Simulated assay, not measured.
Amino acid sequence: MKLCFNQATTRDNSNLANDLELCEKLGFDSIEIRTMDKLPEYLKDHPIEDLASYFNTHHIKPLAFNALVFFNNRDETGHQEIINEFKEMMEVGKKLGVQYVVAVPLVTEEKIVKHDIKNSCVEVLTELSNIADPYGIKIAVEFVGHPQCTVNTFGQAYDIVESVNRDNVGLVLDCFHFHAMGSRIEDLKKADGSRIFILHIDDTEDFPIGFLTDEDRLWPGLGAIDLDGILSTLKEIGFSDVVSVELFRPEYYQLDAEEVIKTAKETTVKVVSKYFKFDTAKVG
């Protein structure tokens, strides 16, 4: 198992350059780069070649761009914006060696029937798959455990990815999102582990289904999520790739970034190492 850091965890108290230095120091294998804020902020003062050079000369590597948001059920203008943004991600991602683009389904107050949601997702993901193929970058679809997200359970997301049926289209399984809308372990047990590209690790306070928000996240192992059930099932179905710690806790943003990253690593390793062996010699 590889250990990854998602920049949401230090969203308000760090930047990309600082996150990279701290993650390198603390033994992370890879990083998920936030494309909505942290990457543009970095590029204001550095050429993209500086970032590529950093990855070429350090242990830490770029796992994913996070994220292409609200990709499905868009009007014509919105759809073209998604395609243009994705094409730009491909060009920049190729320069950096990015493995995945995380794609987030539409969140909306509008009621859309599930049939139309699935059709749109399959159509758009197939188009994105074709664009991504020559770049060697894969698309990791992240269902969001919120009532207003058009794809909000593991079972629904897995059905969409199976229907797309492309090797470069798979899933992000975020433990918080899995818990937040009551995704079923039974659905995960029936899944093909190779369809899950990235595991997001986190925990949460014990609020009812449908009321949880990202700000309720906690360090892994300190909340109400059945992490043992999720991790043991992932091992059973053959997942063994990468775990990325992703938190949005406001209190954690008040801490020093190094303390946050260190605690994120320690709590993640403690929980995950019961089921998976980490590859890096620095983890321990």
Rank of each mutant, 00 (worst) to 15 (best):
T263W: 11
E91V: 15
K235C: 03
F55K: 03
H179I: 01
K38W: 00
E251L: 11
L222A: 09
A67L: 12
S129K: 06
A17C: 10
K189H: 11
F176Q: 01
D228L: 11
T263E: 12
N15W: 07
G155I: 04
R74D: 05
N84L: 09
I48M: 14
V92N: 00
A191T: 03
D50R: 04
D19W: 03
T233I: 06
L22T: 05
K111D: 14
L51D: 12
E246K: 15
G170R: 04
V101K: 02
K114I: 05
T153C: 02
E251N: 08
E246P: 12
S14V: 14
C121F: 04
K95L: 14
P250R: 03
F178Q: 12
Y100V: 00
I230L: 09
N73C: 15
G229A: 07
D167I: 02
L39M: 13
D50E: 11
S53R: 08
S232W: 14
L128T: 09
P147A: 01
P47I: 08
E127N: 13
L51V: 14
T280V: 06
H46S: 06
G182D: 00
S120T: 06
F239L: 09
D214V: 02
P250N: 08
T213E: 11
S183R: 08
F248Y: 15
L128V: 07
A157T: 01
E49T: 15
D226Q: 08
G193M: 11
Q7L: 10
D45K: 14
N72H: 03
T233L: 05
L43P: 11
H115R: 06
P220E: 10
A140F: 03
K235W: 03
